[in-house]
Protein backbone atom coordinates (compact mmCIF):
# COMPACT_ATOMS: atom_id res chain seq x y z
CA UNK A 1 0.00 0.00 0.00
CA UNK A 2 2.97 2.31 0.58
CA UNK A 3 3.45 2.54 -3.22
CA UNK A 4 -0.02 4.03 -3.73
CA UNK A 5 -0.59 7.75 -4.23
CA UNK A 6 -2.04 9.90 -1.46
CA UNK A 7 -5.39 10.09 -3.25
CA UNK A 8 -5.78 6.30 -3.42
CA UNK A 9 -4.71 5.82 0.19
CA UNK A 10 -7.00 8.65 1.28
CA UNK A 11 -9.99 7.05 -0.40
CA UNK A 12 -9.36 3.84 1.50
CA UNK A 13 -8.77 5.70 4.77
CA UNK A 14 -12.02 7.64 4.28
CA UNK A 15 -13.84 4.28 4.09
CA UNK A 16 -12.48 3.27 7.48
CA UNK A 17 -9.33 1.42 6.42
CA UNK A 18 -7.03 1.96 9.41
CA UNK A 19 -4.04 0.49 7.59
CA UNK A 20 -4.45 3.18 4.93
CA UNK A 21 -4.50 5.86 7.60
CA UNK A 22 -1.37 4.30 9.06
CA UNK A 23 0.36 4.79 5.69
CA UNK A 24 -0.63 8.47 5.62
CA UNK A 25 0.56 8.83 9.20
CA UNK A 26 3.97 7.40 8.34
CA UNK A 27 4.25 9.76 5.37
CA UNK A 28 3.48 12.95 7.26
CA UNK A 29 4.21 12.53 10.96
CA UNK A 30 7.80 13.84 10.75
CA UNK A 31 6.82 16.89 8.70
CA UNK A 32 3.97 17.82 11.01
CA UNK A 33 6.16 17.23 14.08
CA UNK A 34 8.87 19.50 12.64
CA UNK A 35 6.38 22.23 11.86
CA UNK A 36 4.92 22.15 15.37
CA UNK A 37 8.33 21.82 17.01
CA UNK A 38 9.58 25.04 15.45
CA UNK A 39 6.32 26.84 16.22
CA UNK A 40 6.16 25.80 19.89
CA UNK A 41 9.85 25.52 20.65
CA UNK A 42 9.83 22.41 22.77
CA UNK A 43 9.58 18.65 22.38
CA UNK A 44 6.84 18.08 24.96
CA UNK A 45 4.29 20.37 23.30
CA UNK A 46 5.40 19.28 19.83
CA UNK A 47 4.55 15.66 20.71
CA UNK A 48 1.27 16.61 22.39
CA UNK A 49 0.07 18.77 19.49
CA UNK A 50 1.26 16.30 16.83
CA UNK A 51 -0.87 13.65 18.52
CA UNK A 52 -3.86 16.03 18.55
CA UNK A 53 -3.41 16.81 14.83
CA UNK A 54 -3.49 13.15 13.84
CA UNK A 55 -6.38 12.32 16.18
CA UNK A 56 -8.36 15.18 14.66
CA UNK A 57 -7.43 14.09 11.13
CA UNK A 58 -8.36 10.48 11.95
CA UNK A 59 -11.68 11.58 13.41
CA UNK A 60 -12.60 13.67 10.35
CA UNK A 61 -10.99 11.65 7.57
CA UNK A 62 -14.42 10.54 6.32
CA UNK A 63 -15.44 14.18 5.83
CA UNK A 64 -12.25 15.10 3.95
CA UNK A 65 -13.05 16.08 0.38
CA UNK A 66 -10.33 16.24 -2.21
CA UNK A 67 -10.82 19.69 -3.76
CA UNK A 68 -7.45 19.81 -5.48
CA UNK A 69 -5.75 20.63 -2.17
CA UNK A 70 -3.18 18.04 -1.08
CA UNK A 71 -3.70 16.07 2.10
CA UNK A 72 -0.55 17.66 3.55
CA UNK A 73 -2.17 21.11 3.22
CA UNK A 74 -5.13 19.86 5.25
CA UNK A 75 -2.80 18.54 7.97
CA UNK A 76 -0.82 21.79 8.03
CA UNK A 77 -4.04 23.77 8.45
CA UNK A 78 -5.10 21.62 11.39
CA UNK A 79 -1.61 22.08 12.87
CA UNK A 80 -1.69 25.83 12.28
CA UNK A 81 -5.05 26.14 14.08
CA UNK A 82 -3.98 23.99 17.00
CA UNK A 83 -0.70 25.90 17.40
CA UNK A 84 -2.66 29.19 17.30
CA UNK A 85 -4.92 27.88 20.09
CA UNK A 86 -1.84 26.75 22.01
CA UNK A 87 -0.26 30.21 21.75
CA UNK A 88 -3.53 31.84 22.82
CA UNK A 89 -3.87 29.56 25.85
CA UNK A 90 -0.24 30.10 26.83
CA UNK A 91 -0.07 33.83 26.11
CA UNK A 92 0.19 34.62 29.80
CA UNK A 93 2.85 32.02 30.37
CA UNK A 94 6.50 32.87 29.81
CA UNK A 95 7.88 31.68 26.47
CA UNK A 96 9.78 28.42 26.58
CA UNK A 97 13.18 28.47 24.86
CA UNK A 98 13.86 26.03 22.08
CA UNK A 99 15.40 22.76 23.17
CA UNK A 100 19.12 22.36 22.89
CA UNK A 101 20.05 22.46 19.23
CA UNK A 102 23.64 21.37 19.77
CA UNK A 103 22.91 18.01 18.13
CA UNK A 104 22.41 19.71 14.78
CA UNK A 105 25.67 21.62 14.70
CA UNK A 106 28.43 20.08 12.64
CA UNK A 107 31.26 18.72 14.71
CA UNK A 108 34.26 20.99 14.45
CA UNK A 109 37.78 21.09 15.81
CA UNK A 110 37.20 24.68 16.89
CA UNK A 111 34.91 24.76 19.92
CA UNK A 112 34.95 28.58 19.98
CA UNK A 113 33.63 28.71 16.44
CA UNK A 114 30.96 26.16 17.30
CA UNK A 115 29.91 28.18 20.34
CA UNK A 116 29.68 31.35 18.26
CA UNK A 117 27.57 29.56 15.65
CA UNK A 118 25.39 28.14 18.40
CA UNK A 119 24.73 31.60 19.82
CA UNK A 120 23.96 32.92 16.33
CA UNK A 121 21.42 30.15 15.81
CA UNK A 122 19.79 30.74 19.18
CA UNK A 123 19.43 34.43 18.39
CA UNK A 124 17.93 33.69 14.99
CA UNK A 125 15.41 31.20 16.40
CA UNK A 126 14.47 33.70 19.11
CA UNK A 127 13.85 36.40 16.52
CA UNK A 128 11.87 34.05 14.24
CA UNK A 129 9.50 33.27 17.09
CA UNK A 130 8.78 36.99 17.48
CA UNK A 131 7.47 37.17 13.91
CA UNK A 132 3.72 36.94 13.11
CA UNK A 133 2.41 33.38 12.81
CA UNK A 134 2.09 33.36 9.01
CA UNK A 135 5.72 34.49 8.58
CA UNK A 136 6.93 31.80 10.94
CA UNK A 137 4.88 29.28 8.98
CA UNK A 138 6.41 30.45 5.70
CA UNK A 139 9.99 30.15 7.00
CA UNK A 140 9.38 26.69 8.46
CA UNK A 141 7.76 25.40 5.27
CA UNK A 142 10.59 26.78 3.13
CA UNK A 143 13.62 25.92 5.24
CA UNK A 144 12.61 22.96 7.39
CA UNK A 145 10.26 21.24 4.95
CA UNK A 146 12.13 22.47 1.85
CA UNK A 147 8.89 23.24 0.01
CA UNK A 148 8.77 25.40 -3.11
CA UNK A 149 6.91 28.71 -3.23
CA UNK A 150 4.14 27.01 -5.22
CA UNK A 151 3.70 24.29 -2.58
CA UNK A 152 3.76 26.85 0.25
CA UNK A 153 1.16 28.88 -1.65
CA UNK A 154 -1.23 25.89 -1.74
CA UNK A 155 -0.80 25.23 1.97
CA UNK A 156 -1.25 28.86 2.94
CA UNK A 157 -4.13 29.42 0.47
CA UNK A 158 -2.37 32.24 -1.37
CA UNK A 159 -0.95 32.88 -4.81
CA UNK A 160 2.67 32.12 -5.57
CA UNK A 161 3.32 35.83 -6.13
CA UNK A 162 1.88 36.66 -2.71
CA UNK A 163 4.19 34.11 -1.11
CA UNK A 164 7.25 35.59 -2.86
CA UNK A 165 6.27 39.04 -1.67
CA UNK A 166 5.61 37.82 1.87
CA UNK A 167 8.97 36.03 1.88
CA UNK A 168 10.79 39.20 0.88
CA UNK A 169 9.02 41.22 3.58
CA UNK A 170 9.78 38.49 6.10
CA UNK A 171 13.51 38.63 5.34
CA UNK A 172 13.49 42.41 5.73
CA UNK A 173 11.66 42.34 9.07
CA UNK A 174 13.84 39.47 10.25
CA UNK A 175 17.00 41.44 9.54
CA UNK A 176 15.61 44.53 11.29
CA UNK A 177 14.64 42.46 14.31
CA UNK A 178 18.09 40.82 14.45
CA UNK A 179 19.77 44.25 14.39
CA UNK A 180 17.48 45.49 17.18
CA UNK A 181 18.11 42.41 19.32
CA UNK A 182 21.87 42.64 18.79
CA UNK A 183 21.85 46.32 19.80
CA UNK A 184 19.87 45.52 22.96
CA UNK A 185 22.28 42.70 23.82
CA UNK A 186 25.28 44.97 23.27
CA UNK A 187 23.80 47.65 25.51
CA UNK A 188 23.12 45.01 28.18
CA UNK A 189 26.71 43.77 27.96
CA UNK A 190 28.12 47.30 28.19
CA UNK A 191 26.06 48.10 31.28
CA UNK A 192 27.32 44.96 33.07
Amino acid sequence: MSDLTDDSVLERAAHGDTEAFSVLYERYVKRIYNYIYYRTGNTFDAEDLTAKVFFRAFGHINTYRNMGVPFSAWLYRISHNLVANWHRDNSRRQEVPLDDHSNFFPKTDHPEMALEKNQETELLLLVIRKLPAERQQLLILKFVEHLSNAEVAVIMSRSEGAIKSLYHRTLLSLRDEIEKTEKVEKVNEDTK
Partner: peptide, 11 residues
Protein backbone atom coordinates in the same frame (compact mmCIF):
# COMPACT_ATOMS: atom_id res chain seq x y z
CA UNK B 1 21.83 31.36 8.33
CA UNK B 2 18.21 30.22 8.07
CA UNK B 3 19.23 27.06 6.23
CA UNK B 4 21.71 26.31 8.97
CA UNK B 5 19.43 27.14 11.89
CA UNK B 6 16.17 25.63 10.65
CA UNK B 7 17.37 22.09 10.20
CA UNK B 8 14.80 19.28 10.36
CA UNK B 9 14.53 17.51 13.70
CA UNK B 10 13.79 13.82 14.23
CA UNK B 11 10.87 13.01 16.51
Amino acid sequence: SLQFSLSPVQP
